[in-house]
Write a protein that binds this DNA or RNA. Sequence first.
RNA 1: GCCCGGAUGGCGGAAUAGGUAGACGCGCUGGUCUCAAAAACCAGUGAGGUAAAACUCGUGCCGGUUCGAUCCCGGCUCCGGGCACCA
Length: 1037
Amino acid sequence: MDYQFTEVEKKWQEYWRQNKVYKVDIDSGKPKYYVLDMFPYPSGAGLHVGHPLGYIASDIVARYKRLKGFNVLHPMGYDAYGLPAEQYAIQTGTHPMITTDKNIARYREQLDKIGFSYDWDREVKTCDPAYYKWTQWTFIQLFHSWYNRDTERAEPIEKLIAIFETEGNANVNAASGDINHFSAEQWLQMTEKQRQQYLMPYRLAYIDDTIVNWCPALGTVLANDEVSEGLSIRGGYPVERKSMKQWLLRITAYADRLLDGLETIDWSDSIKEIQRNWIGKSVGGTLRFAIRDTELEIEVFTTRPDTVFGASFMVLAPEHEVVGQITAEAQLAEVEEYIRRTKNRSERERMTEVKKVSGVFTGAYAFNPFTEQPIPIWIADYVLMGYGTGAIMAVPAHDSRDFAFARYFQLPIIQVITQKDEEPTDTAFWETSYDAKEGIAVNSGFINGMDVMDAISAVVTEAEKKGIGTAKINYRLRDAIFSRQRYWGEPFPVYYKDGMPYTLSENELPLELPAIDAFLPTETGEPPLARAENWKTKEGYPLETNTMPGFAGSSGYYLRYMDPQNNHQYFSKEAVHYWKNVDLYIGGAEHATGHLIYARFWNMFLYDLGLAIKPEPFKKLINQGMIQGRSNLVYRINPEKMAEYVLWEELRDKKLGVEFFQEFKSGSRRFDFYAPEVRLIIEIKRQQALDKLATAYEQWAKEQDYTLLLIPIRDFLDQREQIVQRIKDAIAGKEVEAFVEKESIENFPAFVSKNIAGREQYSDPINVDISLVHNDILDIEAFKKWQPHLADARFVLEDGKYICGYEVEKMSKSKFNVQNPDELIDRYGADTLRIYEMFLGPIEQSKPWDTQGIEGVFRFIRKLWRLFHNDQHTFSLSDETPTDKEWRVLHKTIRKVEDDIERYSFNTAVSAFMIGVNELTELKCNKRQILEPFIILISPYAPHIAEELWHLCGHEDTVVKQTFPVCDERYLIQQSVVYPVSFNGKTRFKIELPADIETNEIESAVLAHQETKRWTEGKQVRKIIVIPQRIINIVVG
RNA sequence: GCCCGGAUGGCGGAAUAGGUAGACGCGCUGGUCUCAAAAACCAGUGAGGUAAAACUCGUGCCGGUUCGAUCCCGGCUCCGGGCACCA
């Protein structure tokens, strides 16, 4: 019997489950290793082959690390809150929990079939009250914390209150919103409500008014990328820019630590770069500009204080508060009109119109604080209220946007920086600004001659001395909006008293999601939770009706896995001190600015609280590439085009003796072909069309003295020779009937195989379900049954086969190219699937899914099986001592596979296994001492066959718990080396030499070789380069 | 516009330290076995060139460094991803 993968795989999956082989507990005697997959959102579609790619890689590492003696934590769970289940609930009334549980069951079934080594006792679901209790708990901690900039960490709000009570808030250095100063006395005299109001801007979870994209029809707030031109992408409903009270998390407090932390973790440069951009730190200073004839000042933020002498105007964001106070009477109408125009456009739309320059002069002037010159103040929407101070000093000579603006409105451009060793030039002739942060200050008073970097700090120092500015760092990062007007999410553990939010006490957690009658917002636009009956505390205070966003539950899940059943704590001290943080995290790159940044923030906060013990949650991150779909195409024939093409092939190049032309026009009539020599017209049309037209056409042709042939398309299917014969007769001048009437037949679809000549010209590609295609050959019978209208389909074949085309595109239902892992497991088994997914290429690279190659892996698995079996298919191992060659194969493979797994090069390890099996097959090796270690070696990749073979070898225990074989260098030492000998870098021949001889011996051996003479003849040997064990190069000339 | 990746046979890819380019697999061609097919096995397979060899060319393009470059440097082209009036 050949290898029976279906039974074998089922048997061992059952065995592993029953014996809880993958269950893991704290074991201080062993080093720990934590391998984590980004847990999935269980969608209704189930897994396709792209999902398990990362899971397989992490599973290989987990199994490998176990064999290497590590205690491996390898859990899995579900990111169970998500829009699809809620959307489905809105449409059907099915509770999202029911949908979600169903989908989870399906996911679990699929995952189990692949043979993953998860410890399922640690499974978490974010929608499980026992889990989200701790999401809510963390929110409470955030609410009761503030960020102390002096200590650079989160601290309890009580400590802040204690400071307020003794000295007010003047000396508090906190990451906070806008605050007014108050004294201890004022604090003590405040009402409870006032105190709460003053505390709010300090909290790490706080409520604030935020401008959001509110969509009344959907009853929710949309993200910027869910809105296009004022309409929701989904549904096309109007979206308003609206100020709403929302919960926010003060992630900005951690901006610097999030940035610095990137230096300490092993993530790809691209993800780190994305996060750096997202945080968007810029270092500079603020400067205050006095406004002429008023007491007012405008503060600007700039990264280039060194260019202040070149600031020739100012620009404010249209919504800047000072605009109303400074606009001159004469400019009022224009300014108001401009503000109205820009107001309703979202930030995103403003950004997309980058190229257009627009703006209006306010009529007011400010004084440049260094040159003391008055400069005009403009408003323009290229200045954003949301960044810096909403105002800039414009330095057109050294900022490209200011330059464009100045040119457009003809404002002065003053050069204040020159490149090294260059003289200033007339800016009137500049085509672009000089933006680089390199050069020497000129026309700049006291900083003249300084280099840019020195000039920056000199100006900041001077500004501080004069009291008109300070050094300042700005971030692009915004606080995270934490409220969603949705049902399917974690309820906030918050109630309102006297209009102020308070948190529930910890013993009231979890606050469970209530039942509601419909999953929609209320008529008054309140979130769905407002429908819940009795949605208030015991005391009768109303509870928060928003729910938390998707990233709430996924931000700390890796910590919960460490101690998932703990009812008293998020996770125990003992657990976190043992498991620490994630050693290897695998998942998609699409979470770069979402989950991966929130989770780092969440972890840092818990670190400040002393709960997490590492500042960074994920030491090493791998982003698996996307698996793209490989669609198959069939080519549907356009019958008229095809008939024309086929006939033209018969007529062209005087094949029938006379010259034909395509497209003959006579008056308003058009015909397909015309031979002027014999006045012969040929027209191809559908039978039905000809039935109607034939008489009129014939009449016309007679009048004009043309010979006419009307050929129905259907004739091209089976009467091609007759057609040609009729044309020949017509050419020969015989009487030929223009149109032979026939019974009309039903239309049927027809398809042409890919490589039939002319196919491109008369067919249209159509996606066909990939399950009907094997190695690009269409299963015609299955295809006919695929859709009802294909039942009578006809085919133009090549070599008796229908060959499909293909295209690489996104895997999606509509392209019929979704490859589902279950099907492949049924056909080839899980081990083959696992190895094939790894074999496709480097884990981080995107690649198309192509089932063709899987056969090769399947062959490899059976070849491995045959190593252990004789010709009669009976298991047979020999206890003889292996030969050196056999040892060498084993140890070479150990070395290669170990190296490859350690550097996550899974595809090359698969090659190494194949080479190993090929070589052992060649050696006809069935020796226990070689093959048993080989089983262990391959078990991370192909756990099922490995377990089966391990037991066949007579072992009672599981292969999972063995020790990874150790490479013994002795077997790798070569007696001799085959050196490639090259002349001037081109390899010419090879020479085998003993491995241990000296360089000069190698040289003389090579020079003595007779091939050498051929290449040195008539030339001089100038140099011999010998790289021991590698190559010999002889320079001649 | 800016930032980050990438480009190697018909296809997926390999070459870990500047040292035999194309490992391994797919596909294709021919063969063995078979009544036949499947499976399996064997041989060949970068391009040009040749009866076969020799030889020439060849890692997106142009140039450089080097005894030697897929790898390092300079300048481009194309593809993928991210960011985008961020002061």
